[in-house]
Every structure is written in C-alpha cells, then in structure tokens.
Design a protein around this nucleic acid. Structure first.
Length: 549
RNA sequence: UGGGCUGUCGCCAAGUGGUAAGGCACGGGACUUUGACUCCCGCAUUCGCUGGUUCGAGUCCAGCCAGCCCAACCA
C-alpha cells in the first residue's frame, strides 16, 4: 500500500513538523446499526491507513450511544469485516458506551461551570425556540437561567429515572443567536428508558453524538478524528466540547467527502430495506456493496483498499465509476488467479480423426503469468464441449473462431478444422465435426499458416456439471443519490442483476474448489465458488472486452 | 431563507502566481496457443461564469451562477 498523500496528511505533517504531537492516533467509529460497506472502506482506509503509514495507533470504536438503533449482530460483523480488510486496531477496540460514566461526570462539570442546563421544552417547542431561520436569532429557553444547583439536582433525577422519555434534556449553553444551528444550545443528553445492548438497564439517559464523540476521542488520545463531510457543520460544537472540558488543541476533527459509486446505493437504511424486503438474499448477497457481499462475490481486501486509494481523498462530491473497482480486482486476479476452463453454454465438438477410447493428456499452465503456478494435466478425448458462441455457420464481421471449413486452435492442444455439423429436426446444431491437425499439438503448423482464433474446451469424459451465476449491477440508474424528485430507488432495480446458467461444463479439477479460491475461467471472467449454494460458481468480474455471454 | 462546504477532460484527481500531472473510461495500433494480459500512440489552447489586479492567474480580488450539507431529544 502506498503512503497516503492528501490534504489530510498535509495537516498531519504540519502538526508533526510543528512538534505538536509525537504520534498519530486515529479511529474508525462505526455505529453498530448495519453492515460495513465499500463506502466504509474509505473511512477505514483514511483512518487506519494514515495511522499505519505514520507508525501510529488506530482504534476501532463502536459508536453505540443510541440504544434504539444498535445490535450485537452488527457489532460482530463489523469486527469480522474490519479484520478481513486487514485494518488491525493496534490501538484497541472500544465502545462509546464504555465512556458513559465519564460523559456523565463531564456533564456535571459543565453544569457546575454554568455551561449546561436542564431544559423542560419538548421536541416541538425546542425547535420553535431555536428558530427555523438561521438568519435570525433563536429565543432563549425559559429554563436557560436555572442555577447550577438546580440543574445538578434535575440532571441527577433524570439519571435516577424520575422523568419520562422526552420530558427533559440536558443542553449545552452556547449561543442561541449563532448562524450555525448546531450551536443554538444543542441537546447533549436525552432520556430513553431502553436497554442498551451492552449496558443493559444501567442508564436511562444517553449522551448525544455531538457531545459524546469528542469526549471519546479525547479519552482515547486520538490526535486526528477524520470523518465524512456532513459533520463539517458540527466541528464548532466538537471544538466547543473539547475546549470547555479542557482538552486542548487535540483531538482535532477534519472532514472528507464520502464515497459514492455508480449504480450503487450506499445508505445503510436502503441496504437494510433491500434485505428486509427480500429483494436480495441477505446482507451478504453477492450483489450487495457490503463487505460481506463483496467478499462472497470474490472481491479481495486488497482490491477494495486499492480502489479507495485510487479514488483519492478530497472534499468535493464525487461519484466513482464502478468500472474502476472492476479494474482493481481484474488486475489483481490476472496475476494471482489460476486458469481453468468452464464452458458456460456447451455444444459438442467431435474430432473425427481421434479414436473412441483414446485419452490424451495435455499440460496446461495454471497461470501463464507465473512460472511458479505450474501446470495441470487436462484430458482430451474424441468428444469435447465448447461454447456455442465459438461456432458460427454465418460468421459476423471480424469473427475469429470456428466456421464451417475454418480452423481454430483448441487452447493448449491441436488446431482443428471444422468439416461439418449435425443438426436436429429444428435445424439447430447438435454437434460440430472437426479433424485435428495432429502435428500441431504443441506448436505451429509446419507450413506456417496462421490460425487466428483460440477457443477453450473440456473433454466430455472429464467434465463436471455446475451452475454459474453471472452478476451485473443491482441498479440501472447511475447516480442513485440524484434520483428525480419523488422517485423510489427500488424503481431502478436491474431485473438482470443476476443470471443463472445451468448445466455448465467445468474442468474436473474444479470439483473440489473452495469458496476462497478464485479462478479465471478462460475467456469468461473471474469466478469463485459460492459459499452458500451447492455446486454454484459466482462471477466476480468479466474479462475486459472479452466477448460477453 | 441563513450558515458551512464544493465546482479543473465522460468519471475521479494533482495543481499553493510562471504558462494544465496521473489513474479509470474511451479511440487507434503492435504482440498474443485467453478477442485477456502487456506494449505503444491519441485523448482539456483550457480550469462554473463575468469582470479586475499582474509582465504573467486554474492559482489573488470582486460580483454572479450551480451543486451538496445543516436547521433530530440520529449518527
């Protein structure tokens, strides 16, 4: 992985050069309310990648301050996905909820300092007092000038469970005239009589993100808290908390644009809905942009990291072309994936000049790019399976494969010449008859004639059957963030997001392939065995410009 | 509407006053027992717009336009 270089690392370099900090400490703070997806990889790569590149520390911290939305299922999946990516939290694994005691202590301190007060306004009233026009100042809450003693008493009674949900909040006393609405006395504690997935019933008041996050960062010694750009408006509040609790210049928050990708929805809400509605098979459906989905599809951690790295870091809205991700996985698999033959849409090819019982062995390279990958023995018999598309009675322009009377190379073996076809009563080709030029088993013909086409094949006696799933984009619309007003994202689902081919003929050595193996099915793309369905291979990505099936 | 942020090639993105990097995509060619890979070549007289400052502006100034975010007791 290359060392990151962007406007964030510039800030870090400056802090380092000024001697303000000696070690970089970052964090990735997901809320456990869904599965990690490729958009998360950007936040992970920025935070983990920078810490890693600078020899610093990186924390995983579950941001679990709202018990209403969080669940252990997500906690576990996040841990798993992060480790799969290789982003090791060398600074530790933490939970925002572990700081509830600290947050509470600091809240009492703010109250005593006259910087926070208990407010009895309900949600609607609070909105009304805050004002709906940031150009004009809001109105002070009638409870704004309660004494610290009174506030402390009330806050303790909030904690003790004396009040119902929504009855009171603790608010930071900042500036009701600020043009930044986040600074108009934001709520920092709310009452929720709900069990927390880790704290149980210990608490009935929970801190809000804007208050809890800077405290968590500060307590963990985070130097740079890098988050997505929608938090930019919250930075003054982040800094207010840091300053008024006496933490100093660090941690500092900086923001970057989140990752979007063509034909992809990234919002956890929609992803959850796709799962709940049964539109996809689950969070790990191979069409999902979740890490578990991409993993099941066959993507590697390296390809994902490489993709976000290639996409870059800036603050402008951007829509990454999904083809860039495909490029990343293709390039990686080209050098690492062993080659195998899979005939997706088979038709029989009969070599007339080979005897019925004759079985010949050819050693085919596992990866022509790699000397260490070795070879495997492939059997050739009189009857073979080839792709239907590799034969054409009436060849389209520039067609390089088999035609009647034409020649083609059987990859790794003979040049064959088509001498005729068998047809059924409908006129469909049932078998293609060829003669092999036996002299060309391992080289070019002696007369120097050129054969342009090369096709792949598998012996009928040595083939295994399997189903093949071809995946395409889940959505037809490119920018799912810019749908017309009133449009539903579900209107843009691609009906051909998965196409299943049955009765495909695979090279026998694929019979015991594992779901973690990745192969290039020669001339068809990169595939891996599906981890959940029997005898099924998933297409990871096509070969570029290869003919499409 | 008020505030914040953003606007450089189809998609990303460098650029920090000295005369537009790079990647993806795309087009053309070479090579090829994968129409893959690889390798060449091409691809912004122009930086949201309009003025201004300057010998010189994508970079500075002014005005305008467009997009995104915020105005939850979500994160």
């Amino acid at each position: 992985m290359d060392k990151p270089s962007n406007f964030l690392t510039e800030i870090i370099d400056a802090d380092l050069a000024a001697g303000k900090i000696k070690e970089i400490h970052t964090r990735f703070p997901p809320e456990p309310n869904g599965y990690l997806h490729i958009g998360s990889v950007k936040a992970i790569w920025i935070n983990w990648g920078i810490a890693h590149a600078y020899g610093g520390k990186f924390n995983l911290r579950y941001d679990d301050t709202n018990p209403a939305r969080e669940d252990m299922e997500y906690v576990n999946s996040i841990r798993e996905d992060l480790e799969w990516l290789g982003a090791i939290p060398n600074g530790g694994v933490f939970y925002g909820s572990d700081y509830f005691d600290k947050c509470y202590e600091y809240a009492e301190k703010l109250i005593l300092d006259g910087k926070a007060y208990v407010c009895d306004l309900n949600r609607d009233e609070m909105r009304e007092y805050r004002g709906d026009d940031a150009g004009k100042p809001g109105k002070d809450s009638p409870y704004r000038n309660r004494t610290p003693e009174e506030n402390l008493d009330l806050f303790r009674r909030m904690k003790a469970g004396e009040f119902a949900d929504g009855e009171k909040t603790l608010r930071a006393k900042i500036d009701m005239a600020s043009p930044n609405m986040n600074m108009r006395d934001p709520a920092i504690y709310r009452i929720k009589h709900i069990s927390h997935h880790r704290q149980g019933d210990k608490w009935c008041i929970y801190p809000l993100y804007d208050y809890a996050h800077p405290i968590q960062d500060a307590l963990e010694g985070i130097t740079h808290s890098m988050c997505s750009i929608e938090f930019e408006n919250h930075r003054p509040l982040y800094e207010w908390v840091i300053e008024n609790l006496g933490f100093g210049e660090f941690p500092k928050q900086r923001e970057f644009a989140r990752l979007n990708m063509t034909n992809t929805v990234m919002s956890k809400r929609y992803l959850r809905e796709l799962v709940e509605l049964g539109i996809v098979d689950g969070w790990d459906d191979p069409r999902m942009p979740t890490l578990c989905g991409l993993r099941r599809r066959g993507y590697t951690p390296e390809s994902l990291i490489n993709f976000v790295q290639m996409a870059g870091v800036a603050k402008a809205y951007s829509l990454q072309d999904a083809r860039m991700l495909e490029y990343c996985i293709r390039t990686e698999l080209d050098t690492s994936a062993e080659r195998r033959v899979a005939v997706l849409n088979p038709v029989k090819l009969i070599i007339d000049n080979i005897a019925d019982g004759d079985v010949q062995t050819f050693a085919l390279p596992n990866n022509p790019k790699s000397e260490t990958a070795g070879t495997r023995d492939v059997l050739l018999t009189k009857e073979l399976w080839i792709e239907k598309e590799d034969f054409a009675e009436v060849p389209p322009p520039k067609f390089k494969r088999l035609t009647i009377g034409g020649e083609v190379r059987l990859m790794g073996a003979y040049i064959v010449k088509c001498v005729g076809v068998d047809k059924d009563e409908n006129g469909d080709v049932t078998a293609i008859h060829c003669t092999a030029d036996i002299e060309t088993s391992n080289g070019m013909p002696a007369d120097g004639r050129k054969v342009k086409g090369t096709i792949h094949w598998v012996s009928c006696k040595n083939a295994v059957d399997a189903d093949i799933k071809l995946y395409n984009q889940l959505f037809t619309e490119q920018d799912m963030n810019a749908l017309p007003d009133g449009a539903d994202y579900k209107d843009y689902l691609n009906p051909e997001s998965v196409v299943t081919l049955t009765g495909c003929k695979l090279e026998a050595s694929l019979a015991d392939a594992k779901p973690t193996d990745r192969f290039q099915f020669v001339r068809n793309g990169y595939f891996t065995r599906d981890s959940k369905s029997e005898n099924t291979f998933n297409r990871i990505v096509t070969l570029k410009d290869s003919y499409k099936i």
